[in-house]
């Protein structure tokens, strides 16, 4: 089974937050709810910067925790969410070691990164990857990302027991 993941070339991430904004717009949630979050060159000032969404863990705590089965791990490894099943109870967010799923205030359902599954299924890229102006945020099968130098951890990112599928090209 292929496991898809994101990868960040952390040395060259410039903290512009374009990915974060593109992700919010894609999901159409209200400004302030960000399924992808990036550090800012104006707030943190000094790099390295980082951008993180759902890590589509191999052992996703959110999926096993959800009391209504709104979350599914697909064959391609994506952790997807069905808002029509979701009851907005926050238990997925609390279970996630990265605190990822967010509450959509307008629907009172959760919203999370699904790696733009519908776009991937249509042969397109995730919105954040397309938007990245420096081309340092990429995605692909996890073995490919590792072959390109992706490591399990980076500055500001710890590899948790849920086995996240986010790889980071180390700063040095």
């Amino acid at each position: 089974m292929t496991q898809m993941g994101f990868m960040l070339d952390q040395k060259y991430c410039i903290g512009c937050q374009t990915c974060q904004h593109a992700c919010r717009v894609r999901h159409g949630v209200e400004p302030g709810t960000y399924p992808r979050v990036a550090t800012s060159s104006q707030v943190e000032v000094e790099g390295p910067f980082i951008s993180m969404a759902c890590n589509h863990c191999s052992k996703p705590a959110c999926v096993v925790t959800c009391p209504v089965g709104a979350l599914t791990k697909r064959d391609d490894g994506l952790v997807v969410h069905d808002p029509d099943v979701c009851i907005g109870c926050l238990s997925c967010r609390d279970a996630c070691p990265y605190n990822h799923p967010q509450l959509n205030n307008e629907t009172q359902k959760m919203v999370k990164c699904d790696m733009c599954a519908a776009r991937l299924d249509a042969g397109e890229n995730p919105a954040c990857v397309d938007a990245c102006p420096v081309k340092v945020l990429t995605f692909g099968p996890i073995e490919d990302l590792e072959a390109e130098g992706g490591a399990n951890e980076g500055v500001g990112f710890v590899y948790e027991d849920t086995e996240p599928n986010f790889r980071i090209i180390p700063v040095s």
């Binding site: 089965g69 979350l71 997807v80 969410h81 069905d82 029509d84 099943v85 776009r119 991937l120 249509a122």
Partner: peptide, 15 residues
């Protein structure tokens, strides 16, 4: 209430 979750991911009108 649905019992089986969709696996399509989010299907947004704009897309």
């Amino acid at each position: 209430p649905k019992t089986e979750a969709a696996t399509s991911g989010y299907l947004y009108a704009a897309e």
